[in-house]
Design a protein around this nucleic acid. Structure first.
Lengths: 225, 225
DNA sequence: TAGTGTGAATGCCTTCACAGCT
DNA sequence: AGCTGTGAAGGCATTCACACTA
């Protein structure tokens, strides 16, 4: 939606080789839709069909894909396998990215268990939390490390992507330490605007805000009567 | 970000009394920032200060607030309490919205426990899942209902907002049933584009896609060398 | 004929710059 | 003097329409 409009915004992101931000944000959706709909059985797909599966307009899909170079055949459609490979390479789903999760509360635990990461090339390699109750326990086969060892954990795993699922108050301090250790991409679930240096990408996911946006529309419906 | 742009976009949303979608998406952030920074002690805030706390530009903040009518004083700033009240009313945070969560896996459980909903006027009033193992158990003080009773649950609670934390395959069917019972706002965590009638708002939160967008930028950094 | 690729046009959002209050 | 409110300008993103190709 909106997208974006969307909330969940990038910071410090440079214009990126001619691919507009809005397009980048949709590529994962296309990739996912391709995998979900056409597991080896369909060989060609039209822009109309794929667009519907991804929830966008056909012309938008075509324009987006044209940014990656052209992988369709006029009069026919797109070669599914080839297109999927191409998008995968571009969004890095072909590689495997180690990810560190900081904050092992309810949300952090859910993310550690989230099945949608693995097929997209992400592997959760470490969990970090300050709570003595949690440190040392095992979650999804990973031992929770103490927050004081954050630097060591990041160094050992070589992670450049981190997920922040801490309370809002702790987020900035943790982010600073992550960036200092070489993390350059942060997915932030805390409801704070993080300040990071140029070149570090942050995406914010504010679950409360998402619901609030829906409530706004509901509120408007109420007022209309 | 991209916000919005962004994935997570509204569907069926009408132009809304002159308030643009992009502004609506930021209002909850302003509301949250006001609450976090100024708990009763500061009476006036400038657009510059609030904008920094919310992670936007001062001019954007001013333009956004001007959509709500004018609650600032030239040469002085915004009356914190008054502004907060005004935004709260507009986004419906002054009311209390009952919310039904469908899908009580790791994510659904985390959402049921999420502390960020209550202060924004949301109360989780029901949990629904098809699994015989879960039905009847208690999560955060709520007994999990069977998916077959979905219609009854929605009717009894009077919820118009629902959260979908089901697998992708089940999402559309559940959405259809929710809409049929009068739900008009859906927060969708399943990685599927939902088809809903005019007048129903859907916001999609795709956690895997969020990470994938970050991976795209990392991939680009790698290729640059 | 069917469906991609893409300039052109439209519309939306953001940024700028300054007029207007206090 | 300081800071909001807002028209105007500029930049993106989306949509349209059609040339082009298999």
């Amino acid at each position: 939606m909106i997208s974006d409009l969307l909330p969940g915004a990038g910071a410090g992101a440079r214009p990126a080789r001619g691919v507009p931000d809005a397009t980048v944000a949709r590529l994962p959706t296309y990739h996912e839709a391709l995998g979900r709909l056409f597991d080896g059985r369909v060989e060609v797909v039209s822009s109309t069909a794929l667009a519907e599966a991804a929830g966008v307009s056909p012309s938008q899909l075509r324009k987006d894909l044209s940014c990656l170079g052209t992988y369709g055949t006029r009069g026919v459609g797109y070669d599914v396998a080839r297109l999927q490979r191409q998008i995968a390479t571009r969004i890095g789903a072909a590689s495997e990215w180690p990810v560190v999760i900081v904050g092992v509360g309810h949300l952090g635990t859910a993310l550690a268990n989230y099945a949608g990461f693995a097929p997209r090339g992400f592997r959760v390699v470490a969990l970090v939390d300050p709570s003595p109750v949690l440190v040392g326990t095992t979650v999804t086969g990973l031992v929770v490390s103490d927050l004081t060892e954050l630097e060591e954990v990041v160094r050992n795993t070589g992670a450049v992507i981190a997920v922040l699922a801490t309370p809002a108050g702790a987020a900035q301090a943790v982010a600073d330490r992550l960036v200092h250790q070489g993390v350059t991409s942060i997915l932030n679930f805390a409801s704070t605007a993080l300040v990071v240096p140029e070149g570090v990408n942050v995406r914010k996911v504010d679950l409360g805000a998402e619901l609030a946006i829906l409530a706004f529309h509901e509120q408007r419906k109420v007022e209309e009567v």
